[in-house]
């Protein structure tokens, strides 16, 4: 997720006074990150979009509770909770559990070509991303969330413990198991992986 917006605190202060435009500047800056997290927790685009929208509405409503510190971590906490709420709602209607959805989601195409990569490389990158996201989706929800917050969003153990409401020891063990799970899963996609990964797990 993107690093913090320049003059972020100015926008937050204005938004707290009810300036919707200032809040929307924050939304535009963080929406890809919030949506990505929601997508990877939820597993499909429609639910992720719903959860992300809900997260920003809740964030605006609860802006008073933001008391400094990392705004991104505060926002991801709300987003995570919005996803968990949605997952709980689905559990009560097991017929639509996302594990049962066929094919999960449509791919939204290869990432925008950066600097100097060939079309083949772009396709390979898209496949790798799909493989990694598939492996993340295969984890239990608790492990998946900790892994995303730690290794994708790069939050500290402290922040993750606060967001997920568990102690540091639990964060540590869930993260370790999640990393092992993803690594084991990625063995199946060895040909997509960068050479470093292949070497290290090739024994």
């Amino acid at each position: 997720m993107a690093s913090s917006l320049p003059n972020e605190q100015t926008f937050i202060t204005a938004a707290k006074r009810g300036d919707v435009d200032a809040f929307n500047r924050l939304v535009l800056h963080y929406q890809d990150g919030v949506y990505s997290l929601a997508y990877r927790i939820m597993g499909d685009e429609a639910s992720a979009a719903d959860a992300a929208q809900e997260a920003f509405i809740l964030a605006y409503r609860r802006l008073e509770t933001y008391q400094g510190g990392s705004f991104k971590a505060w926002l991801l906490r709300i987003a995570t909770n919005a996803c968990y709420d949605e997952l709980r709602r689905r559990k009560r209607r097991p017929a639509t559990a996302f594990e049962d959805l066929p094919g999960a989601e449509a791919d939204d195409g290869p990432p925008l070509p950066s600097d100097e990569i060939s079309p083949e490389q772009a396709v390979q990158q898209a496949e790798l991303r799909r493989a990694i996201e598939g492996c993340i989706r295969g984890l239990q929800t608790d492990q998946r969330t900790v892994l995303l917050l730690s290794d994708v969003e790069e939050l500290s153990y402290q922040e993750i413990a606060a967001i997920t409401g568990v102690n540091l020891g639990t964060v540590k063990s869930r993260l370790s198991r999640a990393r092992l799970g993803v690594r084991g899963c990625l063995e199946a996609f060895r040909e997509l992986l960068p050479s470093g990964f292949r070497q290290s797990s090739n024994q």
Binding site: R129, R179, V182
Partner: peptide
Amino acid sequence: ATIGLLAALPARK
């Protein structure tokens, strides 16, 4: 290496 792959995961639009 696993952490490196996850950290390089591009954000979705």
